[in-house]
């Protein structure tokens, strides 16, 4: 069934080399990856395996040395930097381990700002941001600054910021690494809820417990994809369907 879903990311033969001459360091070796709508995909592997480099390339944050990347049907390899930025603005949301929230802004403003950047009017942005914060359970913390929030609450603000513009794909990097397991589960449930017929989530993680929320797990080692299997969430769903 997953094979017919819309591909949000299609990377073919992607290689990445840093430096030149004696300092030449290959990080990715002809990696191919497809991330489909309707799926939460985990990209797992040991430190230095190239997983962060791979997501930054598929997100259009840096260029591949070789290969082709399509993001939401757009061929990034043929686009200028500003065109790629426009695709990111329209299609992507990001969540990071360290939240990356502006400390001077309230939770509401942190979320609303990205919406204003995307073209929403101030009133529209505020209303949508408030709604997004309510969805992540922080409706009553909208006026608080990040310094007044716990780590889990900050991550939920970051998720609200990523989801508020209804991106096609949310990309996350170790989103639960700084959180306790209970808060981590709550955060994953929020990301899981974003997965829909036209939307997906791609997360980089070391944490095998997150497989419970994943439809697919792609494993990468030494810059090569070494495994691509169903995650526990899909397996559980398929078992429930079979029963």
């Amino acid at each position: 069934m997953s094979d017919v879903r819309v591909p949000l990311v299609r990377a073919e033969g992607v290689s990445k080399v840093y430096g030149t001459g004696a300092l030449r360091t290959p990080v990715l070796h002809s990696v191919s990856l497809e991330v489909r709508a309707g799926e939460l995909t985990l990209l797992m592997g040991p430190s230095g395996s190239g997983k962060t480099t791979l997501i930054s390339i598929v997100a259009g944050l840096q260029r591949a040395s070789e290969g082709r990347v399509e993001l939401c049907g757009e061929d990034l390899s043929r686009m200028s930097e500003s065109q790629v930025a426009r695709v990111r603005r329209a299609r992507l949301g990001f969540v990071f381990q360290t939240y990356n929230l502006f400390p001077a802004l309230t939770a509401l403003d942190n979320v609303a700002h990205v919406l204003r950047m995307k073209g929403a009017s101030p009133r529209e942005a505020d209303a949508t941001a408030r709604e997004a914060l309510t969805r992540v359970g922080l409706g009553d913390r909208a006026g608080h600054r990040p310094g007044e929030l716990s780590g889990g609450q900050k991550q939920r603000v970051a998720i609200a910021r990523a989801l508020a513009g209804r991106p096609s794909l949310v990309i996350g990097d170790e989103v639960t690494a700084a959180l306790d397991s209970h808060t981590g589960i709550a955060v994953m449930e929020l990301l899981r809820a974003h997965v829909g017929p036209a939307t997906g989530v791609l997360l980089v993680t070391h944490d095998h417990r997150l497989e419970a929320f994943a439809d697919r797990v792609v494993e990468i080692e030494d810059g090569r994809v070494v495994g691509d299997r169903a995650g526990s969430f899909r397996a559980t769903r398929e078992e429930a369907g079979a029963a």
């Binding site: 997100a59 500003s82 930025a85 990111r88 603005r89 992507l92 502006f102 950047m117």
Partner: peptide
């Protein structure tokens, strides 16, 4: 604010 500014660039700030 480099991290936050890089985040804005990531989500498409010009």
């Amino acid at each position: 604010h480099e991290k936050e500014l890089a985040t804005l660039k990531a989500v498409g700030a010009s």
